[in-house]
């Protein structure tokens, strides 16, 4: 996945939605900009398979530089897969945030109405 092809929340989560077996499946992660801003990520907590997420609401937390931040879901739906292994090697987030750094796959009920395209998201990051 290329950063240019993804949608973003203002809070720096990315989402890619594909059709799979007649069902929309979203892959969710956090952007390269977020990873860079967070700095050295030392802890991450993710929900479990089968849990529900709601667009715009928290789905997990990270700690970096002694700061705990929430991650917010770009979609509403049921979690199909969790990238549990990533919490054992968080460097993947900075090495490859849009491929190997994925966090959740979700069966989509609905998308956030606040998704930004890459150009708009990039502009937001540059204005920080």
């Amino acid at each position: 996945m290329k950063a240019e092809d993804l949608k973003y929340l203002e809070s720096h989560e990315w989402v890619s939605v594909v059709e799979h077996g007649g069902q929309q499946v979203a892959t969710i992660g956090i952007s390269a900009f977020a990873v860079e801003q967070l700095g050295d990520i030392v802890h991450m907590e993710l929900p479990g398979v089968g849990d529900s997420v709601t667009a715009g609401e928290e789905f997990g937390e990270v700690e970096s530089v002694k700061a705990v931040s929430s991650m917010y879901s770009p979609v509403t739906g049921e979690i199909l897969e969790v990238h549990s292994a990533i919490v054992d090697d968080l460097s993947v987030l900075s090495d490859d945030p849009y491929q190997k750094g994925w966090l959740l796959k979700v069966k989509v009920d609905s998308l956030s109405k606040s998704l930004l395209d890459f150009a708009t998201y990039k502009q937001q990051c540059e204005s920080h």
Binding site: V42, H43, E45, P47, G48, V49, V65, V82, S84, V87
Partner: peptide
């Protein structure tokens, strides 16, 4: 070493227990 359950959480490096025994930037 990491520990996993239904919900995933891990400490990647074990630092001293007390904040004041740790050193961060």
């Amino acid at each position: 070493h990491g520990r996993s359950s239904n919900s995933s959480a891990v400490s990647v490096q074990r630092e001293p227990f007390l904040c004041f025994q740790r050193r961060a930037v």
